[in-house]
Design a binder for these strands. Structure first.
Lengths: 131, 131, 131, 131
DNA sequence: GTGGTCTAGACCACA
DNA sequence: GTGGTCTAGACCACT
């Protein structure tokens, strides 16, 4: 379920956090659904439990999950408008990517077409799933 | 010319490589133009020459510049089609960003509007500058 | 009556103790009034009786309630002056909060305004209810 | 300099983070000043370096310091308006404290007097110290 | 020398 | 059984 690249430069805990975040964003992991227990996941991935916990803590700080000691970790329902800072980051990244695609020869119309396709594809499973 | 954020947790050589890449993309540094010599730039930025070297090596690996031993480093003219791999990466990143923006509550129409604005803004200075 | 946030990382028994304390402070639970029996409350909140017990014990230690073996737990009438230690703690906390609000950019006048508003709001139901 | 209570229920890393935060808020640690190195502090406090790092990481997440790998950790200049969420928390805490002080018999006028005294005392060293 | 990552293994509080 | 904390000790990247 979680494919990690142990040789990658990116730390394991970040890779894991990223994977989990994607599952949440794509609504594979539903709001308030319980995540795999730290120790269980550590066993499956043959990774130290501390590393898993670090990933979960990271996601908690970023507002994607919440952890209840003694109970488990759960998907946090999305709250529109909370992550203004994150949105600004995404804007900047978007800008960079578009500029580089232009530089590499992609025509503007082509870029818009692809994004529209992406938007309609995400419409079903994606989009905000609030309380 | 190159504003580096020494406070950032991103390594300096990566920041520098990114800045140079942007200048190339935005056509501020023209094809075959010579980049500042390592030692000169090191002096101006009060940064270790090794760090500059690392940034240039990074850019060479990614195909944005080329080095002529004994002469210096130069901007590599863009070659449409050669960077298919890079384009696929950009596609994936674009997909991720769009999906996350949707999750964070941005409306699809809003996303397209922003990209169009970005496209028209880059139209002047940006765009491919091939041989 | 007692709304607990099972998602919170704060232990349930602490949340419960806090809620009861607030009801006492706001004079909703009057002096010498009997608190809900442990088992009853456990049933209503669908929570382990041990957890309720722990909350009540906590409140007894802090001087907000008293227990009569075989009878139940009751609200302890406030005794001005006996809680000097608690008052000193509150002073310290108050100092910390005010300092941090200043640091975060809140103007002194604004702080006083908010506190006055808070004071007049609590004036009705709040205030000391001694013997 | 940092007095920790190893027997306290509060985790060491939180105690340490709190202490450092206070030094920053009271302007004892000035903006962009370097914090003690993780290993050095670990040695002085006879505490594991990982624990220190956890405290620093916590402070970084909350926006009070920034860490540059290979350089050190530094005090982050305050940015007014960034910490809206933290301010809301402080408001709630302030409300609770004021209410409890009333309950313990402190007169409203007395509360305001103390806060004003606190405000003028903090005026010198406290207050925001932005860029 | 700096912070960052990871492991192995132990202990605690909570439900 | 759960997450959380802490230690000891090793290795890496960056400057």
């Amino acid at each position: 379920m979680f494919e990690l690249d142990l040789r990658s430069r990116a730390p394991i805990y970040e890779q894991l956090a990223e994977k989990v975040k994607e599952l949440i964003i794509h609504n594979v992991l539903k709001p308030d659904q319980q995540l795999p227990a730290v120790r269980v996941l550590a066993g499956e991935l043959t990774i130290n439990p501390n590393t898993i916990q670090k990933a979960y803590r990271e996601l908690e700080n970023r507002g994607y999950i919440y952890s209840v000691p003694g109970k488990g970790s759960f998907v946090k329902p999305a709250e529109t408008g909370i992550n203004v800072i994150r949105l600004q980051d995404l804007e900047k990244e978007l800008e960079k990517i578009v500029t580089e695609m232009l530089y590499l020869g992609v025509r503007p119309q082509e870029i818009i077409t692809r994004i529209k396709r992406q938007l309609s594809k995400s419409a079903d499973k994606g989009g905000p799933h609030h309380d």
